[in-house]
Design a protein around this nucleic acid. Structure first.
Lengths: 205, 205
DNA sequence: AAGACCATTGTCCGTATCGGTCAATTCCTT
DNA sequence: AAGGAATTGACCGATACGGACAATGGTCTT
């Protein structure tokens, strides 16, 4: 890509990036016209091609951007610091909610890109994904002390339960296309957490 | 549409219909080429236009088909008969799982169609949706006897919890693009239900 | 065998859109 | 005014689009 892109005023960069997220999140890679992206960013197609030499380059740049931002959020909210399970879920969810409200189309884009099948980009996406996230996950269950929980049920089941509910929650948010109320979302999720603690934990809190 | 379509052997009808579901579920209405649908159904574009005089007609036909099948499943599995809440959730989920495995792309299509914004079809979709489903829902919570549940927590919260987890579950299924194992899915969900009963119900079962 | 009927297809059309190029224009700085 | 950078409009060849229509080929009847 053309390094001069970074010399643009922040605001203009953002506008272009967001336009890319928007269009690519609504269509497959192949059916996302550069034209539309340029229009959506308020610039000419020519200028877009001036900064990104071709479509693939722009797409991969956006993917990388999305990964970096996600990474920032997750670490910024302490999701990778060792704590107990609920604390981790809360941090993770808070990070995701914030991210989704501030960069909604980016989140949608990231999901779609992850499942993109076009051979022109799919391989690069997957490779990049591995190097970003894959090793970081899955250590959630290891830092659990089973003695904290009420007896007689499957811990994995509980984790899966919570995981699915969170996913359903995020899915609900993504679909909704009105204005998002961060505070309300966070309150909602806190309620869910409280509810879980009450039910799953011995001490109830 | 051309009524002769119904005279085709069932198998061929299905192939065309499924092709439609596939393509329309993967792209927006505008960016779903009739060409692609015909190819996917193994017939010529001309023949497709022979049965459905234009794109809009095919799209709306598919939507109607999806609604009808959904309706059949829901009633067929007794989802509208009055029972207790868990029984209802189980029936509903069983219906949805069966439907998603047998008509996966149809389900994806229905979701996408519901959110379609193209003015050429969006209005018709929404009107139709209302006449199909909207009045039927929301009576789930009314047939609950609060005495059955453990005390001290919000019933609505619980319902929301379960609803979200189910949605997350379905979302997971939709994304997965390998072969689906119905039995495993149903076992999974039954486990979730058992888990819920154990936690939420006084009697534990 | 001839014709009638009908599902199915190939071909064509006019238009629109695609990714991408490039010369021209505008804008800013000195 | 001049030079360089930012930005654009016009253009290209290719292709894809929805849709129309005449031709093909098979099957049944007579």
């Amino acid at each position: 890509m053309n390094e001069k892109f970074y010399l643009l005023p922040e605001e203009k960069q953002q506008k272009i990036i967001n336009a890319g997220f928007r269009v690519f999140s609504e269509n497959s890679y192949k059916k996302s016209p550069m034209n539309e992206i340029a229009d959506c960013a308020g610039i000419s197609k020519s200028l877009l091609f001036h900064y990104f030499h071709n479509k693939r380059e722009l797409y991969l740049f956006l993917w990388d951007k999305a990964c970096k931002i996600t990474m920032e959020y997750l670490t910024g909210y302490g999701c990778y610091e060792p704590t107990d399970l609920f604390e981790m879920m809360e941090r993770g969810m808070r990070a995701k909610i914030r991210m989704m409200t501030k960069y909604r189309s980016m989140t949608a884009f990231a999901i779609k890109a992850f499942y993109e099948k076009d051979p022109e980009v799919s391989l690069a996406i997957h490779d990049s994904y591995q190097s970003y996230f894959e090793m970081k996950a899955q250590d959630a269950l290891t830092r659990i002390d089973p003695d904290d929980f009420v007896e007689g049920f499957d811990l994995k089941m509980m984790y899966r339960e919570m995981y699915l509910a969170s996913e359903g929650y995020l899915w609900e948010i993504i679909q909704w296309d009105g204005e998002l109320d961060v505070q309300k979302l966070e309150r909602d999720f806190e309620d869910m957490l409280k509810f879980w603690k009450k039910i799953y934990l011995k001490r109830g809190e």
